[in-house]
């Protein structure tokens, strides 16, 4: 078990390194000159050159890359003398446009993204799995066909469209919800809930649709397994056969998906956060993209990748608890 974990963490480290490398290449080497975008409108070639010096952009590629890597562990100083800017470890970049440590910027906005992700995950897991199981049990009925049509629509409709329709319906037309304004939970739980309800619904619709389809397929497949026949031959009741023997094998793969989907959302629900004016990690990235603030874009990419990698390890560990076959074969 310990050996397995060490192996996984080592593999994760290598993947992380590769991710850092490729993001670094894409954002610092292939993108427009970051010095130019920092420099702004009143720019002179001398000033660009000074900024390039300060950012270390005149160094050879690998020196830049290792400086970047080292900064994660020991922090980094940009420039020298009076204009020095210090970025504490772990430093994944510094935004000269917002004059902020990128990691700090992400950490500040993470609670919003976590709130969105948790709420949406609860909603989509409950509704998606329930709809999928009912569809499988009632395979071929009107319920099944209707639910699957709805799910197809849920997957196909773009997020921003659903978000705008929902806002129009619930806020403008029916006036069931006030225009969402984000307040801390402790100030007004009701208002807090109202602000997050629509983002949750928008994200949950898309994911629930995918989960419903997957759950339905898994349950139908499991129903055809020989052990289900054995369970019936034992004289178990319908619900015991379905719940005890049918759902456990059907839902275990859902765990894998949930871990990765949830982690992806921690890296920000870019569109949803932007449409609903929530200042989460996604919105941070969106704003950075608009002004070509490369350290921020790159930082968010790295953190998102990190979240997915960690989630994968957690899911694999969880799988060993959930599936006895995995537990034995890898220990």
């Amino acid at each position: 078990m310990a050996i397995y974990l060490v192996k996984r963490l080592f593999a994760a480290l290598i993947i992380m390194l590769l991710v850092v490398f490729f993001t670094f290449v894409i954002f610092f080497q292939l993108s427009p000159d970051p010095a130019a975008s920092i420099c702004g409108q009143t720019c002179t070639p001398e000033r660009i050159e000074a900024i390039r010096d300060q950012l270390g952009l005149n160094e050879p590629f690998f020196t830049q890359f290792f400086t970047f890597l080292a900064a994660i562990f020991v922090g980094r100083d940009y420039g020298s003398g009076a204009s020095v800017v210090h970025c504490n470890a772990p430093c994944i970049g510094y935004s000269f446009q917002t004059n902020q440590d990128v990691l700090q910027g992400i950490v500040d906005r993470l609670p919003v993204s976590v709130t969105i992700a948790v709420g949406a995950a609860v909603l989509w897991l409950l509704s998606g799995v329930a709809a999928g199981v009912i569809s499988a049990v009632k395979e071929g009925t009107w319920w099944d066909k209707g639910a699957m049509m709805f799910a197809l629509a849920g997957i196909s409709l773009p997020n921003y469209f659903v978000a705008l329709v929902l806002q129009y319906l619930l806020v403008v037309q029916l006036q069931w919800l006030p225009f969402p304004t984000v307040v801390p939970f402790t100030d007004s739980p009701v208002q807090w809930f109202q602000a997050y309800l629509m983002p949750w619904m928008v994200l949950a619709l898309m994911y629930a649709s995918m989960y419903a389809r997957l759950t339905r397929t898994n349950v139908i497949d499991t129903m055809g397994e020989n052990f289900m026949r054995t369970a019936r031959a034992k004289g178990l009741g319908r619900s015991a056969v379905l719940i005890r023997h049918g759902l456990r094998p059907s839902l275990t793969p859902i765990v894998t998906l949930l871990g990765v989907d949830f982690a992806t959302l921690l890296g920000g629900a870019l569109i949803t956060e932007t449409v609903f004016g929530l200042n989460g990690v996604g919105r941070y990235a969106y704003d950075a993209i608009a002004v070509n603030d490369q350290p921020v874009i790159m930082g968010v990419t790295l953190v998102a990748a990190f979240a997915v990698i960690i989630a994968n390890i957690v899911v694999d560990l969880l799988y060993r608890v959930l599936d006895p076959r995995v537990r034995v074969s890898t220990s």
């Binding site: 020989n226 052990f227 026949r229 054995t230 031959a233 456990r248 094998p249 599936d323 006895p324």
Partner: peptide
């Protein structure tokens, strides 16, 4: 039944 491996549920002892 015929095939004992598939006739037993892999998730339970």
């Amino acid at each position: 039944f015929q095939d004992p491996l598939s006739s037993l549920n892999p998730y339970y002892t």
